[in-house]
Amino acid sequence: MPSSIPASGTAEMTAQPLSVRSPSTMSNSLAALWRDKLAALSAVILLVVLGCAVLGPTLLADEARAMNLQARNAAPFSGGGGWLFVLGADALGRSLLARIIVASQNTMVIAFSAVACALLIGGALGLIAGYKGGWVSAVLLRLADSIMSFPSMLLAVIVLFALDPGITNVILVLAVSRIPVFLRTIRAEVLEIKERLFVTAARAMGAHTDRVLLRHIAPMVLPTAINLATLEVAFVMLVEAGLSFLGIGIQSPEVTWGLMVADGRNYLGSAWWLAFWPGLAIMLVTISLNLLSNWLRILTDPVERWRLVSKGAV
């Protein structure tokens, strides 16, 4: 039964839709990604790192361990020893390139697992603390405060001293120490968003708390959470390096980028490349993640999406 009301007035119809049709399919998203060159480059870098992390240890494990005392602290691009030594060699004459590729697995596993755990737990608690308020929020926040005020390094030292200093425990310790950051940020966002009218509307419709949280609030805080997470990945990589440096993180012969930076510290004066290349790897991954998450934020926001589709987008 179509109504006899005119299909919106003249003034309304002249207001043409601002945005282009949503790129819902995969190929559309990829096309949008290609248009944003920086984001595309970031995606390529991350794919390469992912490839290294998956395949590196099986292909290059021996090369990464092989010592060549003649190539001790060999400078990058010095030409000797083949392609494995383009980036130079470390104090024991091991190929830096091979070591960086092999180390990417541990580094990525630790950083991503720790941040993912912190994001999931901190995010969930933040949603609850922000939405429920009251004593639940107070208890959660004081817990977060106590974790934050306790030096995370000290916590890690105690825990890892008591437990086995393996990858799992390192992930656990790092995750726990980063939960408060997510909890507080997400709670603050939720406090603002839950007052918005569309949340009130959902409640008035009879929506249960879980629906309001998951369908209305979570999608709104997700972009912030993801952006924060990409920054946290870099931070976690460095903390992990600190733990390894103290000898309670990853143990040799296992290796991570952070550990390589820490090892190279002693040779900064004579062989800067020992710390530089793994440091550069950390930086590249962080920046790529950041750029890509930014792009993702715009892509998933219907209001902003036109920026990616129209020409001359940044």
């Binding site: 039964m1 179509p2 109504s3 009301i5 005119p6 299909a7 919106s8 007035g9 003034a11 309304e12 207001a15 839709p17 601002l18 945005s19 949503s22 219907p302 209001v303």
Partner: peptide, 20 residues
């Protein structure tokens, strides 16, 4: 019934005017 077109269903709110 409210004077919009069925193909408006796949758009997002910001693509409409206040009255719509």
């Amino acid at each position: 019934q409210v004077g919009l077109r069925p193909d408006h269903a796949d758009r997002y709110p910001h693509e409409f005017s206040a009255g719509q």
